[in-house]
């Protein structure tokens, strides 16, 4: 098949999907603001860097760009962006704005290699932050593994046990084509697609779990509201300082809940909420160990739990 024919087919597909996606507008304020909307344009002197290189590679894969992969936003890349925009039915130009990124992401959606029929059992999700993977379980058995990007050092992905509490389909530049919100009580975190697929496999996000768009499209259809999601990392074993008591919400509470479970007590789901059940479990631990059963975690208790 010659390259021209391939390009035409590709453009038609892009147009069709773009129209479909455009019919599903998302409210920007509802989603996490964890990613920046990227804009690249042709300028003098030309822009250059890894972001430009990534764009060259992605457009080359789709047959729009045939120039060198040198990371420079030169005339050939501008021409390729013009072709892309034309194929997408966008206003003429050579800028990669939000609409162009959407079109590019949509055009990259393809059947997942070795795609499986939907899992038949009860679905749960494990996000292994250390391994940069998301594993879908069906009836407790691993079903499929996906590569992901996780939070940067300064904005780590939270760990804990939550559920999918919202599903949104549609394009929102930074979060790609699908959004699955986690029921994390202290922030707006989710599992979503991306406008920066080269970041997958890296600690690159502002805390969300980032997937390839074609992967999150597949995952989206398998999960329902209420699907349990476990996010784990060994990096969480850090020293705790603050005294904790009923009403406190946060990552430190998850650490406490997991530690209580390690010691054989049952605080329920490690959701980071120091509620009545956590307080009762703390009191049970204190009582069992001959300590005053206050239900609160003092600094001494942190030592005795091995958390400090």
């Amino acid at each position: 098949m010659n390259r021209g024919f391939q390009l035409i087919i590709c453009c038609l597909l892009v147009l069709l999907i773009a129209r479909l996606v455009a019919a599903l507008p998302l409210k920007e304020q509802d989603l996490c603001k964890c990613e920046k909307v990227r804009e690249l344009s042709f300028s003098s002197p030309p822009r250059q860097g890894p972001a430009v290189l990534e764009l060259q590679q992605r457009l080359a894969k789709l047959g729009f760009y045939q120039g060198p992969a040198d990371g420079v936003y030169g005339p050939k890349l501008a021409e390729a962006v013009q072709k892309l925009r034309k194929a997408l039915g966008l206003t003429p130009g050579s800028d990669m704005d939000d609409e162009a990124w959407l079109g590019l992401a949509i055009s990259e959606i393809r059947p997942v290699a070795g795609s499986l029929p939907p899992p038949a059992g009860e679905i749960s999700i494990l996000v292994d932050i250390d391994a940069l993977t998301l594993i879908v379980y069906s009836d407790g058995m691993p079903f499929k593994l996906y590569p992901i990007a996780i939070g940067r050092y300064e904005s780590p992905t939270p760990v804990g046990e939550w559920k999918i509490c919202e599903k949104r389909a549609g394009w929102h530049g930074a979060t790609g084509v699908r959004w699955l919100r986690l029921s994390n009580p202290w922030g707006s975190y989710g599992i979503h697609g991306t406008n920066n697929p080269n970041s997958i496999g890296q600690a690159a996000s502002a805390g969300c779990v980032r997937m390839f768009n074609h992967h999150v499209v597949e995952l989206y259809d398998w999960v329902d509201i209420g699907t349990p999601v476990l996010l784990k990392s060994s990096r969480i074993h850090r020293c705790l300082h603050s005294p904790l008591k009923e009403g406190v919400i946060g990552q430190e509470v998850v650490c406490l809940q997991w530690r209580l479970r390690e010691l054989g007590f049952d605080p329920g789901r490690a959701d980071g909420v120091y509620g009545t059940r956590t307080a009762q479990t703390v009191a049970a631990w204190q009582s069992y160990r001959g300590l005053k059963a206050t239900g609160e975690i003092s600094e001494d208790s942190l030592y005795l739990l091995g958390l400090r």
Binding site: H237, R238, C239, H241, Y303, L304, L305, G306
Partner: peptide, 16 residues
């Protein structure tokens, strides 16, 4: 608990 704490610190956990 004291023994476990030492091991966890040695293995790079319980940072800080």
């Amino acid at each position: 608990m004291v023994w476990e704490r030492q091991k966890r610190i040695e293995h790079g956990f319980l940072t800080g």
